[in-house]
């Protein structure tokens, strides 16, 4: 049985906005993602050149070597707009908060062997600065990227990276009794410790890299493609025998986030690569160059944590990334 509520029916005169209908090929009902993401950015009739980059228009497709007929092909398979984005993250954070509450209730992270705690602080906490670099890189793409489709998603990524930096920092505060000493030490590691200099150097080079699509590939595909499996899978597994399992629920957020976000990163790069050979060439070159550099950058920390097993682990990660790249149509 169904119930039948009588309402007045009024025929709509159109189903969606005209710019969306043009993109869908017909005036048919559109999703919220489609209505709120297409064509938000101005593409012409600019009034003034930016005083901070007078050689370009305010929004300018020529700020990258990648060329696309239509920049709105770079869609997000997660179909995030602000509402679905914040709701998805609030949900993920709920589970993380429970893990923090559980750990906090027990005073501090119990059961982690003291020597592993030292290792953990050394490999995990400096990553909050890596995340901050990733925040800046994605923010830069949101600034100078072209088309609202890619730049709205990089805006979400910008805030994600700040959020992850804060989750890492809270783990530090949990392990140092809320004093902040672990974070101060981690910052010093990031600035000075030889284990971290390769990665910091790579990040700083990306902060000044002119081509935003290269930054996208280097940061979101390649560097993350090394750092996440290494820190949150391999290092985490290595810690299980030392009571590191008590920390795992606190970094679950990062693993879930990485799996989810990789779908978007792959969609963007794959779509750009398929459009023309020149794109595929640039994307392949960037991926190869940065993969080499990323591996060198994380080798010291991998060796410090995993010892002799590090090289085999990195081989595995590099191979996974290559498989992923080839699936996207890259020559890697």
């Amino acid at each position: 049985m169904t119930i039948d509520i009588k309402t007045a029916t009024i025929q709509p005169r159109r189903q969606t906005y005209a710019n969306v209908a043009r993109r869908l090929g017909a005036d048919r009902p559109a999703s919220r993602y489609e209505e709120s993401m297409f064509d938000l950015q101005a593409t012409g009739a600019f009034h003034y050149r930016p005083t901070w980059a007078p050689e370009y228009d305010l929004f300018d497709a020529s700020r990258t070597a990648i060329a696309l007929e239509d920049w709105h092909v770079l869609r997000d398979p997660r179909q995030f707009y602000y509402g679905t984005y914040t709701i998805a993250r609030a949900r993920m954070m709920e589970a993380t908060e429970k893990a923090f509450a559980y750990a906090e209730k027990r005073g501090r992270v119990s059961g982690v062997a003291e020597d592993w705690m030292t290792v953990l602080r050394h490999y995990l906490l400096p990553l909050r600065h890596y995340e901050w670099g990733a925040n800046m890189n994605n923010c830069n793409i949101t600034d100078i990227g072209f088309g609202s489709t890619i730049t709205e998603a990089t805006m979400f990524a910008t805030m994600d990276r700040l959020g992850i930096a804060q989750v890492i920092s809270r783990i530090g505060l949990l392990t140092d009794g809320g004093s902040g000493t672990s974070l101060t030490a981690a910052k010093q590691d990031w600035i000075e410790h030889p284990d971290w200099q390769g990665l910091r150097h790579a990040i700083e080079d990306l902060l000044v890299a002119p081509d935003w699509f290269e930054v996208f590939v280097a940061q979101n595909l390649v560097l993350d493609g090394f750092v996440y499996p290494l820190a949150y899978r391999a290092f985490d597994e290595a810690g299980q025998g030392h009571g590191g399992g008590a920390i795992s629920p606190l970094t679950e957020f990062m693993l879930d986030w990485f799996d989810e976000t990789s779908r978007w990163v792959d969609a963007v790069i794959g779509t750009a690569a398929r459009e023309n050979e020149a794109n595929a060439g640039h994307l392949s070159r960037w991926t190869n160059d940065w993969a080499k550099r990323a591996r060198e950058a994380v080798t010291p920390i991998a060796r410090a944590v995993l010892g002799p097993a590090a090289d085999a682990t990195l081989d595995g990660i590099a191979a996974d990334l290559a498989v992923r790249g080839r699936k996207l149509g890259l020559a890697v």
Binding site: T118, G177, G180, T181, S182
Partner: peptide, 19 residues
């Protein structure tokens, strides 16, 4: 790696410092 001072003796951060 930096040796961590004993935890118990550390002062807790104020909200402002924590932020």
């Amino acid at each position: 790696m930096n040796a961590m001072p004993p935890l118990q003796k550390q002062r807790k951060l104020s909200l402002k410092e924590r932020y």
